[in-house]
Design a protein around this nucleic acid. Structure first.
Lengths: 107, 107
DNA sequence: TTCTTATGTGGCTATATTACCACATATCGC
DNA sequence: GCGATATGTGGTAATATAGCCACATAAGAA
């Protein structure tokens, strides 16, 4: 069992990539097959497949096979709250995550 | 202004490194100077300095100079909720973030 | 002024991450 | 069986990240 802070960091890291974050948010709305998820992004299908493998390895999603298709669903439903929380962060703080530096004093 | 999902991903990424996550959690408890923060981790002081620069650039922390010391404090207090949420995730799901694969079916 | 402490930046290297292509496997319809 | 569809993996190249050292700056102490 890894250190708690490292486990937390690992989850955050997993959902800190735009494609993986979007996958998680898409799964909030229900089960999706790999092909549906892949079609959402302008990257290679196999790249999405690897993102899914990472999410699966961390236990963030789980999958189910049905014929040709493999359906993914969220296994950590609590991420819904976490990301809702993050939406609140951005809504309440317009300067957040604008790493161009504008709007803040330079150093 | 970047795409919303990218801004969210950027915040998550910033706090997805064990040292930066620990810095944020330490700042939950109040203002700390760079030297106090640096002493918490077994990495070079200048490395911590760069982590702080990243958190500052994203607007996650802000700083204040007082004599020789530079004090950092959290500027996105809402992260407290977000990380409390994540603690709940890990408390409720023992299998989370154990990327060794044990406890889950292999693929 | 000179020394010491606190801090940040530039530069470099090692490692990790991402994305693509090529290819392999599995299932379905015919 | 054969072709088409859905999916995953291995390999590799480009890029990003993390860490350390050397060095620069700033402020207080002597």
């Amino acid at each position: 069992m890894k250190d708690l802070v490292e486990r937390k960091a690992a989850i955050l890291k997993a959902i800190s990539h735009p494609v993986r974050l979007s996958i998680v948010e898409e799964l909030f709305r229900g089960e999706r097959c790999a092909c549906e998820l892949a079609s959402l992004f302008p990257v290679d299908r196999t790249t999405v497949s690897k993102h899914l493998a990472l999410l699966r390895r961390l236990g963030i999603v789980e999958d189910r096979k049905d014929g040709l298709k493999i359906y993914y669903r969220l296994r950590m439903g609590c991420l819904v709250d976490l990301l809702r929380c993050l939406d609140g962060v951005l809504a309440n703080d317009a300067r957040c995550c604008d790493d161009s530096g504008e709007g803040r004093e330079k150093r």
